[in-house]
Design a protein around this nucleic acid. Sequence first.
DNA 1: TCTGGGGTCCTAGGACCC
DNA 2: TCTGGGGTCCTAGGACCC
Length: 420
Amino acid sequence: MAFALVDCESFYASCERIFRPDLKNIPIVVLSNNDGCVIARSTEAKKMGIRMGVPWFKVRENFLKKNGQVFSSNFTFYGDISARVMNILEGFVPRVEIYSIDEAFLDFDTLKQNYDLYNFSCHIRTIVRQWTGIPVRIGIAPNKTLTKIAINEIKRRNVPTSVLCLLNEKEIRNALAHTSINKVWGVGRRLTEHLNKVGINTALDLAQINPQNIRKKFSVVLERTVRELRGERCLNIDDDISSKKQIVVSRSFGQRISNLKELRPVVSNFAVRAAEKLRSEKQKCSQVSVFVRTSPFNNKKPQHSDLRTIGLLTPTNDTRDILIAAKKGLLPIFRPGYDYAKAGIILNKFSDEQTKQYSLFKDPNEPKENTKFMKYIDQMNAYETQIYFASQNTKKWSPMKQNMTSPKYTTNWYELPLVN
DNA sequence: TCTGGGGTCCTAGGACCC
DNA sequence: TCTGGGGTCCTAGGACCC
């Protein structure tokens, strides 16, 4: 009985290396939107002490001086490479859960008994590397939480093959003893503080506590973690690509925005994008939330952050309905005199596009229900936005500084790499 | 000067019911 | 002046993940 976790090594940085062999052994960092902070680092960059999430401006000078290579994020490219990796994995085992852009759980239960899981995993690793250029680590263990521990052990011990089995009690115990509590999957900053206070410092400490007591003092979530550390299986492989429960479109602004006239079209852009995503999921929503906030890092200026949720009597995925709701939500939360740094739209309460739920009363904002109209707009805008809504910002709103983006090597004809 | 974006799950507490 | 007990459902916000 085993699961495996496949984890791409420094995924974004590895992607950037695929078509740039000259970057081998060179420190690489990839930045968030607005080139705000570091969201990925190659091994060399990690060794330089660049921390995950650190603001770029704080490390820029030192990093560049040491000949580091920096990239703005190129999610179109990373997404395409991720899909290729996942595709290969799905060819090896029938049940794969794509957990994130750079991680997947594999169900090894489906394999024959006495199957050599270690060599099989080494083979998977070789093929993924050959076919995509992406190096992966593979951790094998009885449950998800322990596969995460296995991946940590590969990093900690610097396992040369990047594949590790944690299948017998002794190996597991040894790994847990070397794992500090904050590295355990599901234990974040808050829980680490709490647990340290009561003398729980390693994964092994946590595993030795009675799960029922953990439930009483902490939560069911942590109870599950404890059970998994003890070898029980609480979380299953979920390969059901069921639709999302929430859609968020939000951005930090390159420059602060302090008047409604400027903010409104920006929020409209988010609403339009959110509605597009919703339609591509073949869902409708009946709740639209809008939020705004100032920068939590600026303690010299007054801060304000608020969220307003608008319920819709009838589910919709028509951009015009979402725009009306967005406007309705934004007006009461906007306050003049604040420098807003970020805003966003959140869609909730989804229902299937096909099912129709009519309202008992007449909806004053009767949904437009013109699916053909939206379909045409989606088709026209598929490659590049050509049709805008009147309330949008048509200036291709993007005060985002992203000057260091690599080409869309694999998804755009005009940016394909050339071979001389 | 400059600090990301997109998700999931759980829980406490309010609103409401009989 | 005195004001119950036991539920369900929903939502906002917290904690966590990558």
